[in-house]
């Protein structure tokens, strides 16, 4: 039963419950018009304490396509937050007006605090460098659609794995499906946080940490790319030395399997060359569309509309 639940962490729902959401997303993809009025009287509040266009638009489009309405802020300085209001008080107030709350916050764990004070479902839309569970739902639905399975895969994550919350969430969620292995490709400075590898080690899941993409791309079923930002490096020399290792182009794609898929949470800033876009293995724009459908399914389920 998903009605009334919060989604703070990608593992809050069991694999069976996630299947329920993915199955419903598949139904929406098949016949979207049939669900135009599913959430007709409901209001979604988007509390975005840091800038986002893609995730916010995706949630707002999802609710509007279900016939619901949207309120919220996309810039905290234009809200009561600028006056120093706590997360707890903001959420308790907004819950008086809305049926479901979506929160993005630069501080890690803020949506959990929100859930402790909210009588309506709270969805974590990204908290600092921590987790981004609805991106994970998007990613899992994309993998399921492309590979027809969520287990037994070798998943490569490439780029900034230290601050890349989408990667942390994906690893956490995908590690629940049997047979998955992880190849973590990043400069030493941007490796995944210790808690991520500690989790994998405690579950006995195989993982490998490596610096060069071209050395391992041929082993992957899924390649999940993220941005490597210059400001994350300690010095300019390291950035210049390493940045090309994390750019995917047609030359590197020639080393990959024919059935590998390339994913990216977007926006990209040069880490996937435009010459990859026409490759049938490039899934990142399809992934963005799956994101809206999976959010439609999630909102419907948490509101108990289906």
């Amino acid at each position: 039963m998903l009605k009334g639940r919060h989604l703070l962490d990608p593992t809050d729902f069991s694999p069976g419950e996630l299947d329920e959401i993915f199955d419903f997303a598949d139904q929406i993809i098949q016949t979207p018009d049939q669900f135009n009025h599913l959430c007709d009287p409901s209001i979604l509040a988007t509390l975005f304490y840091e800038p986002s266009t893609r995730t916010r638009f995706s949630f707002e489009a999802a609710m509007l396509r279900l016939g619901g309405k949207v309120i919220g802020f996309s810039e905290p300085m234009s809200s009561s937050v600028a006056k120093g209001e706590s997360v707890a008080d903001t959420v308790r107030t907004v819950a008086c007006y809305a049926d479901i709350i979506v929160m993005r916050h630069p501080k890690e764990g803020a949506p959990r605090i929100a859930s402790q004070y909210s009588p309506v479902p709270v969805i974590n839309a990204g908290d600092g460098g921590h987790l981004h569970p609805t991106q994970t739902l998007t990613d899992l639905l994309t993998i399921r659609s492309a590979k027809h399975q969520l287990g037994g895969l070798t998943i490569g994550c490439c780029g900034d794995l230290k601050f890349g919350r989408t990667v942390h969430s994906l690893i956490k969620a995908a590690s629940r499906y049997p047979g998955n292995k992880f190849v973590l490709i990043s400069p030493a400075e941007l490796r995944v946080p210790d808690y991520v590898t500690a989790d994998l080690a405690s579950k006995g899941i195989a993982y490998q940490e490596i610096e060069r993409l071209d050395e391992v791309i041929g082993n992957l079923d899924v390649l999940y790319m993220t941005r490597v930002q210059k400001e994350r490096f300690f010095n300019e020399d390291d950035y210049v030395r390493l940045k090309d290792f994390y750019i995917l182009n047609a030359d590197k794609m020639r080393l990959a399997r024919q059935d590998m898929i390339v994913m990216h949470p977007l926006p990209r800033v040069g880490e996937i060359a435009y010459d990859v876009d026409d490759d049938p293995r490039a899934y990142y724009f399809k992934q963005a569309k799956f994101g809206m459908y999976v959010r439609m399914a999630l909102i419907s389920k948490l509101l108990g509309a289906c």
């Binding site: 707890a88 916050h105 501080k107 890690e108 764990g109 605090i113 460098g129 921590h130 405690s202």
Partner: peptide, 17 residues
């Protein structure tokens, strides 16, 4: 970056892993 660093009313809770 933890929310407890700014919202001081929140108890610091840790669980043994």
């Amino acid at each position: 970056r933890c929310i407890t660093s700014v919202e001081k009313y929140i108890p610091q809770i840790f669980t043994l892993v």
